[in-house]
Design a protein around this nucleic acid. Structure first.
Lengths: 342, 342
DNA sequence: TTGAAAGCGCTAACAA
DNA sequence: TTGTTAGCGCTTTCAA
């Protein structure tokens, strides 16, 4: 059984009281230099570490931040987590990562678990199944700081960070249009997500700018965000079998974009000569794909950093924060071969 | 300030003692059905959750498992983490993920932090910089359960899981040889890692089987595991400028494989006509690459699951475990175009 | 069947 | 300058 050293062990070994040891370790003034030195040296010798659990109980905070994302095996989210970690680490916070796997129920369980003071605050991107956000609302109303990123809810007033989904979608769509693709299908995620909505609007705005009528049969919602590759395949299948099918796809998510390319390959549709593709993805190998992929890249790392800074600002603020802000970060359009005019 | 409900709140509200409430919540026998019912109903109503921190302090365990990996923005490791999570979640354990970013120093800090009883056990894959494993040894000797996976140390006797790196490397190399590539360079990670060693041996064994002399100038060690793309580029550059250069590369890691393809593309070397590639990677888009990539795939998800089961077995065993086991999981060779005979 | 009290590791107010 | 004690939330003896 693993038994770490406690302050008591030090006290006993040196014939001091626990409070004296505690003071020495915390560098208090009201203690003799000598005692301090002895304690510190002994603590160093046995490699003493304070028990963070006891500390948390005492301080009523854990210096831990909970993360709720749909999944980490996804470039976008793992880059975000790296951003979160880079800040949290420097500010002395631990990070607990949980995945909802796009399940509402799992999200609720994770959040409940993270709350109950095992974390000081939450960084959240909603699952694609989540419509009711009461589980966040309750905690937030009772004072648990939450910062939302990427898939953000309207109903809770707090700090939020997102990419400029509207502009990202607009740019990609416009790029397709300018390359001669007028019939553009839009593969996207669950309709109620903020990202889905904003990207749809960007897509529609670009169509409108070039007087291209919006066709609702061109919009495919893969509810699991493309986690289930069957969903994507079926969506692609429906699209290529329309009477007047699209000549280009604009895909609105990491998994969707790659999944869509896989499906097209499976159906023996050549890209871009038969169907062009541009899509949101943070994959680091888009230039190695066949064809290389035109994509909208989100500043994921930075998004994680900003969300974390915002959360820590709330956590360490002495006064309740009233003025909340929603930051919007620019995306980048990387033009490659998958959207080449034929 | 976020203040969760405590057992005290319930006791006060119902005019009971905290111990009675505690007993009711824990379903103890020595309590009247009526009191139990009242307490449970009230707890339900206010959505009471026990404070896990206090519980940990009391029970001297946290039901949390610490993970130490080099990075999560890597398909192999994020799949492993998914496997870990899938088991941990069902067994009621939380998971705390930390990244060493291939830095020894960072690994030490993370491990120190995770220890001190904030976790019950550790799941570890070593950083590429780690040679001295005293930080694990100390904790392990004092009784902290640790299970190593992937990059495992020899010096600590505990459960371990790894892929069959020898056979994976052997298969890939043999496949190259059988396709007519006799001059095979080997791009790999830091020389002291177990994975590096085992893969090197597999590579050498395949060469030997076909009477191909081993040439040491064909082995390139990228010490950061290819985290720094310059390292890979330089390695590739050295290789293609050898007097008698290789006609194929066998790459021994997720980042190395993709990085190597990028470097070859940058240097305008066509794959596989000028240089063939086969490598270890768990990327999910290898069939979409240009050319599609012949790769050795590790059962990452399963590796995470097994490591977690092993750890929980230690955690929940009533007796100290003496018989430790090292499980070796088979890899899979996926043959694609990047190794096509010309 | 219930309550009071001790204790998990640590800090801080109070005493000496 | 140091020691004693109470308390953070919870469980668990021991008493009642």
């Amino acid at each position: 059984m693993y038994e770490p050293y406690t302050i008591k062990d030090i006290a006993k070994a040196l014939g001091l009281s626990t409070s004296t040891v505690s003071r020495a370790l915390r560098g208090s003034y009201e203690i003799s230099q000598e005692t301090k030195k002895v304690v510190l040296e002994y603590a160093e010798k046995i490699n003493y570490r304070p028990n963070p659990i006891a500390l948390s109980l005492k301080e009523r905070r854990s210096r831990a931040i909970g993360i709720v994302v749909c999944e980490i095996a996804n470039n976008f989210f793992s880059q975000i987590i790296n951003g979160i970690e880079s800040i949290a680490y420097n500010r002395g916070y631990n990070v607990i990562i949980t995945q909802s796997h796009e399940s509402y129920e799992r999200e609720v369980v994770n959040v409940q678990h993270l709350a109950s003071r095992s974390v000081d605050g939450l960084l959240v991107s909603l699952s694609s199944e989540t419509i009711d956000i009461a589980h966040f609302k309750h905690l937030h109303d009772r004072g648990l700081p939450i910062v939302f990123f990427d898939r953000i809810p309207k109903e809770i007033s707090t700090h939020k960070v997102r990419a400029n989904n509207f502009k990202g979608a607009f740019d990609a769509t416009e790029h397709l249009i300018l390359n001669g693709f007028k019939k553009i299908a839009h593969l996207t995620t669950a309709a109620h997500l903020s990202t889905t909505l904003e990207r749809l609007e960007g897509y529609q705005a670009a169509l409108q700018k070039y007087d291209i009528p919006f066709r609702s049969e061109f919009v495919e919602n893969c509810h699991q965000g493309g986690k289930i590759s069957d969903d994507i395949e079926q969506a692609v299948y429906r699209q290529i079998n329309l009477k007047d099918p699209a000549t280009a796809f604009f895909t609105a998510g990491d998994r969707l974009t790659i999944g869509c390319m896989k499906a097209l390959k499976k159906f023996n549709i050549s890209v871009p000569s038969q169907i062009a593709i541009a899509g949101f993805t943070n994959s680091d190998a888009t230039d190695l794909l066949n064809p290389s992929l035109t994509c909208v890249r989100q500043p994921a790392f930075e998004m994680g950093q900003i969300a974390t800074e915002m959360l820590i600002q709330i956590l360490e603020s002495r006064y309740p924060i009233e003025d909340f802000e929603t930051k919007t970060l620019d995306t980048e359009l990387l033009v490659r071969d998958s959207t080449k005019a034929s």
